[in-house]
């Protein structure tokens, strides 16, 4: 099969796909192709989108490839789609970060780090399928152990968990500047 043809098919598949497409899946569909061909076609496509005057990007996310809008166009896309933009509250981000780096982890262990109850946050995260119970810990009460999901990787544009930046070592930690702005008092439970 011609190189350009493979690229064109991949382009189409990415357009109709409703989630990240794995290399494996491309290979199954495009008969007679091998992974190297597909990979190099993907890289080429990625470069064309990146360098051309285009509003979509080809990103490697959650173990597959996916077309996503260019970040610079977010404002217009949001306006077009309507509705309020997705928000990520601090409680959500902190809890997710702890689970992402320390998985599998129990609720009590998360609470020990955050110093606050995380019941509400966890149930929201479970509902949004950003985390899931992966096992039970073999301690009294056999609490659930939580881990992150594919959706978590998709949400944060991560190829896999190894892409998470390494946690700072304890002695590298410095306190950031206090932001000048203050946030109006309201319920912080958001996500």
């Amino acid at each position: 099969m011609e190189r350009e043809e493979v690229k064109s098919i991949i382009d189409s598949l990415l357009f109709v796909a409703d989630g990240p497409v794995t290399l494996q899946r491309f290979q199954e569909v495009i008969e007679g192709s091998n992974k190297d061909e597909i990979r190099s076609a993907l890289v080429e496509l990625q470069k064309e989108l990146e360098n051309g005057p285009r509003g979509v990007r080809l990103v490697e996310v959650a173990g597959g490839y996916q077309m996503r809008t260019a970040k610079g166009n977010a404002e217009w896309v949001k306006k077009f789609l309507g509705g309020r933009p997705a928000r990520m509250g601090r409680a959500t981000l902190e809890t997710l970060a702890i689970i992402a780096y320390r998985q599998p982890i129990t609720k009590a262990e998360i609470e020990a780090i955050r110093g606050v109850d995380v019941d509400g946050v966890i149930s929201t995260l479970l509902e949004r399928e950003l985390v899931r119970a992966v096992a039970r810990k073999d301690v009294p009460g056999r609490p659930f152990l939580y881990g992150t999901t594919q959706q978590f990787l998709e949400l944060f544009n991560l190829k896999d968990l190894t892409q998470l930046p390494t946690l700072k070592e304890m002695d590298e930690i410095t306190l950031p500047e206090i932001p000048g702005e203050t946030i109006p008092i309201e319920n912080t439970e958001e996500c």
Binding site: R68, A74, A86, M88, A97, N157, P176
Partner: peptide, 16 residues
């Protein structure tokens, strides 16, 4: 770590 996570290109906020 949470702050870094929040700065990523988040789906449905920065990219769609």
């Amino acid at each position: 770590a949470a702050e870094k996570l929040g700065q990523r290109e988040i789906l449905a906020r920065d990219v769609f």
